[in-house]
């Protein structure tokens, strides 16, 4: 078990956590109610998990390119291209989560529609995050660290 393999596993686990965590603000804000202090912490943590999972991926990305990418494409071009899709989706997840987070935190108390829109952003981020996790598991099953 190499350090890179552990990091890959941590990255995957964080991704699963982020997918579940991003669903929570989508449910919390769906009626547009102003979140409580705990709720605001939950929003920050949800977006934080998404950023952390993405950052872990970025951290191991140079090693992925050096160690995994070439054999992966050699074994399956389709899986190699699916990894590219995964990294594109991951960017969208982080941007949607951060946009939703700031909107939910700064929206005035009476602006329920803004918080409902933020809930939608979190829901879309969670759905895309689930796809990222699925693609990551599939690609890692073909070839990993």
């Amino acid at each position: 078990m190499t350090a890179l393999r552990v990091l890959q596993s941590v990255h995957g686990q964080l991704g699963v956590l982020a997918t579940a965590a991003l669903l929570h603000p989508a449910l919390l804000l769906r009626r547009g109610q102003r979140p409580s202090r705990r709720g605001r912490w939950a929003l920050v943590l949800s977006a934080g998990f998404a950023v952390l999972a993405w950052s872990a991926g970025v951290f191991i990305y140079p090693d992925y390119r050096r160690v995994v990418k070439r054999p992966l494409f050699h074994l399956s071009t389709e899986a190699g291209l699916l990894f590219e899709v995964k990294e594109h989706f991951a960017v969208a997840v982080v941007c949607l989560a951060l946009g939703g987070l700031v909107a939910a935190l700064v929206a005035p108390a009476g602006e329920r529609a803004i918080r409902r829109a933020a809930a939608l952003m979190f829901a879309l981020a969670s759905a895309l995050s689930a796809l990222v996790v699925g693609l990551g598991v599939y690609v890692a099953s073909i070839h990993g660290f």
Binding site: H88, V91, A92, C95, L96, A97, L98, G99, G100, L101, V102, A103, A104, V106, A107, P108, G110, E111, I114, A117, A118, M121
Partner: peptide
């Protein structure tokens, strides 16, 4: 202050859509 906060919240939503669109 309320209008500023509403504008900031809406701008954050705009960021959430503009950044991934630019990426693609």
């Amino acid at each position: 202050a309320e209008e500023r906060r509403s504008a900031l919240a809406l701008a954050a939503l705009v960021f959430g859509l503009a950044a991934p669109s630019t990426y693609v």
